[in-house]
Write a protein that binds this DNA or RNA. Sequence first.
DNA 1: GACCTGCTGCGGTCTG
Length: 928
Amino acid sequence: MHQNLDSRIQTLLKQKNWPTLTKIQEMSFPSISNGNNTLIIAPTGYGKTEAAVLPLFNQMINEDVKPVAVLYITPLKALINDLSLRIDWWASKLGLIVNRKHGEVPQKEKNLRLKHAPHILVTTPEGLEIDLDWASKFRDFYKNVRWVIIDEVHELINSKRGSQLAILLERLKYFTGRDFQRIGLSATVSNENLVADFLFGSSDRKRSIIKLEGKRDFQIKVKKIDNGSWEDAASSLISSIEPPSLIFTNSRFSTERLHEELEKLGQKDVFVHHSSISRDLKDMVEEKLRKNQSNAVICTKTLELGIHIGEIKKVIMFRPPPSVSSFLQRLGRSGHSVSGTPNGEIISMFDFDVLESLALCEMAKKGKVEKPIVDNSLDVVARELLGHLLQNQETKLEDFYKIVTGARAFSNLGIKTFMRMIDCLEANGLLKKEGDVLKLGPNFFRVWRFNREYKTIWCKDFSEFFSLINNNDTFSLRFEGKVIGEIDAVYVYKHIRVNDVIRISGKLWKVTRINVNKMSLDVVPENSRKGEIPIWRGENISKSYMIAKGESIILKEGKIDKKILDDKAYSSIKELTDFYKEKEIPFPSNSTIVLEKRDEEWVYSAIIDERISNTIAHIMLYLTSKRYTLSTYARASIYGFSIKGSPIDLLQELKDYDEEKMKAVIKKAILRSSLFIATLKEIQPSFGRLGRKIDPERDKFIVNEALRQTLRKYFSVKGTISFLKSIREEKISIVTYGGETPIGDAVVSHVPIRPWLIDIVESIYEALKGGAYTSSELAEVLGIPLKSLENKLKQLKKMSDKYKISSFIDVDSKEVRWVLVDDFQNIVNSDDYFTSFTPSNLEETFIALLKSADRESQIELIFKPKDIIQNPEDIKRRIPFEDIGELRVIDMNEMSYSTPLKFYGVSRQVIAYILLNATTYIQSVKFS
DNA sequence: GACCTGCTGCGGTCTG
């Protein structure tokens, strides 16, 4: 027992039946009591929370502390609920008030805190954001904060959420005017000083890092099943399950699919847990785990960290996890107590799964974990500046600059960049600059709206201001008013119809109603039919460079740990290595590339950082789509890269680029990638730039920032340059092989990256210039499938502002031809198409029915071809709306039996020509 | 064919 502990706390320890403090609690006590900023590193289940809280209680009960004295921040709502109960057990007995705050805390409970201000407040980073920015009344209690505890720091450090929190802490310090003590709790990390820097920011306190080496002991078995067989996977799972087991997968789809197979095999009490299942159902599953009423739960990352889920006998990973840290987190979910040894198993589907599993074990045993990369995104800075202005109405420019640069993530933020950001925010009306004083601008509440009714596609609900987490649109599934789960909106539009049966949360549901406005599907349970598992589209989960490193070690040193492999796994890895030995080709590595050609696809296998593969793949895709064909794709992974459709070996060309040329090409390639477009879309609202139209000159700052973020996250310019340099200097050798290799298989098993649509738009525009073509002709010329081209043409016709296109009927061949609006007049006058715009009877009367693009207004025009030829401008004047959505032309004399000729998305500029074309066509059909 | 996380405060009015 710690001699410095107050007797009241000692009594409570006895009540809890804790004979001693745990080791980590003992270790951190002096440093926390001394007022040092302290980072505590230990695996889950070692009593980190009490390690942080007990020394604080010890001080609090002996001093007269004012609320809020302790701020406890943690990333999950479920953790808040858990922790506040756990802390309250001590606090209530010591006369201290605990309060929790997150989005699902009932309003009643939230209101309590103004009457009885808590000494300890447990909340999320977003909760703190809301309070500082917006809680005008409660905010004053924050002036008393003396201690801030940040839980699960390792979860936050890599993300925008983390840098948001880092700035918030600096804002809090500015607000309190006090250098409060900071305490961080973290799982094992590789670079603890970096984590400490991130956490302690501008604080001048002494720092200590208290670390309990987690045991690297674990039991692991690697199994292998037949390629891609879900049946095999399920029967293998059954033989592996030791109730209660956790089965981790890498996709929501796999959880549902495995559950389906297990059910077929008669398995009972197996449940599904992932982010698209409603909170209620997830709670139910967690409860089953805690009460030991389940044989197994199949889950995604949702159960990787966080709340206590009871004693797990065994952790099964269906296919290897994407990083060492996630491998350890997952493994750590079993043998949760201090003494237990984690017990786990990896089920491999492919031979490279076995290789990855071996690599994960190798790196984990050596204690190699991924290094965190601290996020320094400027949309976070912008958001924090606006929040600071919500709080203070105004701020001096240099004051806020000092606050931001106090956060370690932004200590390198130059004043020039900062000023460019200010200018951008001002240009978009989020800020007003008066001398060196900043105020909120007029557009702030246009971007973040209170009233949902006025919401347009681009503006955001006010509540979203406080969060930097980005989401796709989803439909919720409802049964009797209760939410079951969620499905991507795109998937609903494309695939779901009434009476379809969907499989989600391991159960079948029949769709009875699709409510597009409310974005919900009404469903009822269904038992008789087979259900379709929805596909949730997410971001590619990239594989850690640690896996690539581990694989290199294993292959170079021939270090295959037989003990952990089952027979099938061993023979699959043996076959893989034997292949290369027998064919006398070197194994792909970071110094050897094996090149093979599969049909039109150049496959380069190597074992390298995925970001290098991704960079090269994007450059090759850019060059191929620009020079040769749009019918192309590339692939990238830790197993190398590939390109389809290039007539030449592009790597030979790339290796001779100098650094400058390389950087320029990389930039062009990335600006066209969907990764960049998605990043741009994500950060736009933070800078107040609404709407689709991004102007590369006017919005230079935003474009550059999106580019920088995309580069940092998915690409490696430095790595690629040095990789190519090594090829040039022949430090990396390239071996060509005439057949198909196993690692080549791994390369082509990855999802193809296709050219971004913007390329297609430009190419269509280029191809159309000066001519009139049918869609099949265009598809042929551009090398894209006819269907995708036709879709694109229709879209273009509607949205076109830069690329205006139109179509007419070629009267001679009865085909539709596409043409640029700007070329229309020349086409009409050309010899080729002149006859398509020359009605045989100029005196005949026609009716044109026009609808506006928004379908709000509709008019009817009666005309003769003669009128149009004599005065083409007049017809334009007679149309009261700007955009014509639909045009129908009817022959007045034959109204009763002729079907009207329809045109969609007609540009006003060419309406006269289209009317002539329509009448010519109708007459030609009539007389033939 | 691909993970996860979060999301107004405050005071006033109305209803049973």
